[in-house]
């Protein structure tokens, strides 16, 4: 059985590493030093990054306290991955993949063609079995959205 603190420890570690990276690399390289008018632009991001570092450190400590000390053993990590059910993760990735496909579709073939296809794909991915209804809904949604955004609101849909 997975220990309660496991997730917290690793979340904390990742965020702590991220805050170090921000503080020592990203902020100095991507925010210009400037001091003519009051505090420099890098001041506020630095303060937040330090705060993030501190909070993630606290998270690691509290994770360890909750009996997650074994989290660092190889066995515990293996155990953790074994305990994850692959099915939900695959589902989420599939839906997210379709979402990215929609972005690509909007950027290339445009709204009118990609929207019904994506609704159809999502419907299938969600295991909706009545295809006729699905096709009707895809067409209807596209038309309605086109009317709302394209015609009433005058947005230049791609």
């Amino acid at each position: 059985m997975m220990k309660k603190g496991f997730k917290d420890i690793y979340t904390g570690l990742v965020l702590f590493a991220a805050s170090l990276l921000m503080f020592f690399y990203v902020i100095p390289h991507h925010i210009k030093a400037y001091t003519v008018y009051g505090l420099p632009p890098s001041f506020f991001p630095k303060v937040i990054t330090v705060a993030l570092g501190v909070f993630s450190f606290i998270l690691i400590i509290s994770g360890l306290r909750q009996g997650g000390k074994e989290a660092f053993s190889l066995e515990a990590i293996k155990e953790h991955f074994r305990s994850i059910d692959g099915r939900p993760a695959r589902n989420v990735l599939m839906i997210f993949g379709i979402a990215i496909l929609y972005y690509i579709g909007l950027a290339t073939i445009g709204f009118i063609i990609s929207t019904p296809i994506i609704i159809f794909l999502l419907g299938i991915a969600f295991r909706w079995k009545r295809y006729v209804i699905l096709i009707l809904i895809s067409g209807l949604t596209t038309t309605v959205l086109y009317l709302i955004f394209g015609v009433v609101l005058g947005s230049p849909l791609p």
Binding site: G105, T108, I109, G110, S114, I117, L121, I124
Partner: peptide, 15 residues
């Protein structure tokens, strides 16, 4: 699903 993905890919190529 494969059919729909193919349709989209085709559309993009045409574009």
């Amino acid at each position: 699903m494969i059919l729909m993905v193919a349709l989209m890919a085709g559309g993009m190529a045409l574009w």
